[in-house]
Design a protein around this nucleic acid. Structure first.
Lengths: 250, 250
DNA sequence: GATGCTAACGGCACTGCGTGCCGTTAGCAA
DNA sequence: TTGCTAACGGCACGCAGTGCCGTTAGCATC
């Protein structure tokens, strides 16, 4: 395919940082197109490198494996999330901060709808690529869980570790749901609007603040108290309510 | 290592179904021990096969890849979960059914503590093995989400798809948390007791009864509490509610 | 404009994973 | 004893991923 295979001195496109980004993207696009066209297994790394006009060895200087070729560099997004968490106000709702963090992931997909949609058809079809995607989601989820754990711990939450893992998984799942819907729509729907709704559902479920509205199920006790009551009275009344049949409205 | 390499006719241990299980386990144990002893990358498939007394080609008749060697056959557990969901009473809480399903996964680990603990140190250390583990968790999570989605849809839940994905992720995360703690304890703690607590937290967060709005006037504080909350939590939440501006619905 | 330095690139060779193919052999039935 | 079937071992092959090295573009310096 290449007209000048042994030409001395190809363009050194990867010399500068900007050049590296460009070549990386060229390789990604080439990989995606070849995978879609000829199938993942049928496409060799040589094919991808040749399509991008570089040597096979260079490919592996840009991607650690054949599967990685179609994915963006998650490391940068991860760093952005870490920075957002580090700079976050401790007075903010931790779960909402986590949602803001994972929104950076969403944005990284939104910034390149064409590639994202094509990649989705691949991760939806090819098992090794799907596994890689899942592994990267797990990396994000771990970062979320770590942040939430420290926040929950300083807030004195009981079972902080468990809560953090569960909440992180929920936030990640909400993000994935929105992302999938957006990808299935071909990148046309309003992802951020969907994300707001989805995150609201998670925040409501996991908010550690006194919730504005609560789901009243069989195991919920509603206590109505005068604000002038002393704390001791309150405790007494609450413990009475928690006994079977003692709830004021259950 | 094998004393009789070209002996005609090794034992056909894999002939019967029971024999296959036995040889599979032998290969798994050999792989785990070799990975722990010599390192994952340093250990070749030939080493594993030789340690188990079979040929390299036979190894790949039992495992699809080198990474798969240390994992149990998730397919069986997945089938058990599907059957549990199929036979589940539709009047049961869907999230609780999902927890019951994922408990089957927990049990599969508990049934072989020795291998599970050793495997954990590997998945905790070796990136490719961790990725495989994450991928298998995702498979379970998808089954949970599919069940929850149909249940939520027939229950007429709004955003059933989103809720199902998020709840499935939460259930899976709670399971993983319990499993990790149990593995870190060396398989000594009471995993089922931990699981009950962890699942309770998820069920509370995702119970799907219609939300109830509470309105109060300036002199009344309405606090809605989960009966599973500890007294300390209750006091903390109540005192927060009694502070000006801290009320949940005042 | 000539020279030296640095870093990216291409090519080569090598290890090892995963697979298709085939001859061999154990287990079982007739 | 004979024939059938299925698991096994060995062989060869393609390809992923890596270490090594010579080459070359880009840049600074004289």
């Amino acid at each position: 395919m290449s007209v000048e295979p042994q030409q001395t001195g190809r363009r050194r496109v990867g010399r500068t940082t900007e050049g590296r980004r460009l070549l990386r993207r060229t390789l990604t696009v080439a990989a995606i197109d070849l995978f879609l066209e000829s199938g993942y297994e049928q496409t060799t790394v040589d094919d991808i490198a040749a399509a991008a006009g570089v040597g096979r060895r260079t490919f592996f200087r840009y991607f650690r494996s054949k599967e990685d070729a179609i994915f963006p560099s998650h490391d940068e997004v991860l760093r952005d999330i870490e920075r957002l968490f580090a700079e976050a106000d401790d007075r903010q709702n931790p779960v909402e901060v986590a949602c803001a963090g994972v929104t950076l992931v969403l944005d990284s997909y939104l910034s390149d709808p064409d590639v994202s949609v094509k990649r989705y058809t691949l991760t939806h079809t090819v098992a090794p690529l799907r596994d890689k995607e899942v592994a990267s989601v797990d990396r994000y989820q771990r970062v979320l869980a770590r942040y939430l754990r420290t926040r929950f711990e300083t807030d004195g939450q009981p079972l902080a570790d468990l809560r953090a893992s569960v909440a992180a998984a929920a936030v990640a799942a909400a993000h994935n749901h929105v992302l999938r819907r957006w990808l299935r729509s071909g990148g046309t729907e309003d992802a951020h609007a969907m994300a707001r709704k989805a995150f609201q559902l998670v925040v409501d479920a996991f908010s550690t603040e006194p919730p504005r509205r609560e789901t009243g199920d069989d195991e919920t006790v509603v206590a109505v108290l005068r604000s002038s009551a002393s704390l001791a009275e309150v405790v007494q009344q609450i413990s009475a309510s928690l006994r079977p049949g003692g709830g004021s409205a259950q």
